[in-house]
């Protein structure tokens, strides 16, 4: 079953009517919530778990915490934080809603802040634009995000929104940069067998650094790494 398809078809009807019921007047016919879709993440993993841990993961995947409305709101926020219109893809390409859902279920302490945060942002958006967040226009959404995306904003009314947005930004960035897309975006080079032989020469130069010869004498000569170590009685390495 393609989760994206399911989400798509589930979205249209209930949301539109839900919105009407709440606000009584939907100014925008542009129901972009209907278009939210993302690359689904796997729901089974193999990464050196004990039985107890496997059981825990299975339970988390089986648990449903978010209502559909909440999940769509999360998806829209993730998309605003890291949009897809980039060569290395964005939050939705990286399956962020699934990741956020998993993490929130895994960490009890995130549950309330995320649920409450979504309710807060809906209230704000009804107050300002007469519909909840997913049913207002894109520019209306951005105007709400602008109110809460910066911790230096002092307005006391906005503080809960700022906390929520900060949490969503943290989860989105961490979720994206821990995928292959994120590795690509960052240019990350590690996590592979290699031979560390110091900072590349051109980098040293840029930073005005050198390896002192005294220090280098204590360092491994990588051409000899496979020769079995032998010492004399005075602790001098001979090989």
């Amino acid at each position: 079953m393609d989760r994206r398809e399911t989400l798509k078809s589930l979205l249209l009807a209930p949301l539109a009517s839900g919105v009407i019921a709440t606000s009584g007047c939907v100014t925008s016919s542009n129901n972009s919530a209907a278009r939210v879709s993302w690359t689904p993440l796997p729901t089974s993993y193999s990464y050196g778990r004990t039985e107890v841990e496997q059981q825990r993961d299975r339970e988390l995947f089986a648990e449903s915490y978010f209502r559909e409305h909440e999940l769509i709101t999360i998806a829209i926020l993730c998309d605003i934080i890291l949009p897809n219109d980039h060569p290395n893809g964005g939050a939705l390409d990286a399956g962020l809603p699934d990741f956020v859902e998993f993490m929130v279920k895994d960490r009890e302490r995130y549950k309330l802040p995320v649920r409450g945060g979504i309710a807060w942002i809906d209230n704000r958006s009804i107050e300002k634009f007469g519909a909840d967040f997913i049913n207002i226009t894109e520019s209306q959404r951005l105007s709400i995000c602008d109110e809460i995306a910066y911790p230096d904003i002092q307005d006391p009314d906005l503080q809960p929104g700022i906390s929520f947005f900060t949490l969503m930004r943290n989860l989105t960035l961490t979720g994206y940069y821990t995928t292959a897309l994120g590795f690509e975006d960052l240019g990350y080079k590690g996590n592979t067998p290699n031979i560390w032989d110091g900072v590349p020469e051109e980098v040293l130069k840029k930073h005005n650094m050198t390896y002192e010869s005294e220090w280098l004498k204590k360092c491994v000569d990588q051409t000899q790494r496979d020769i079995t170590a032998e010492w004399d009685d005075d602790m001098n390495l001979l090989t």
Partner: peptide
């Protein structure tokens, strides 16, 4: 009786 050390990082 030490093995040689890895070079420092930046």
């Amino acid at each position: 009786f030490f093995l040689p050390a890895p070079k420092p990082r930046l």
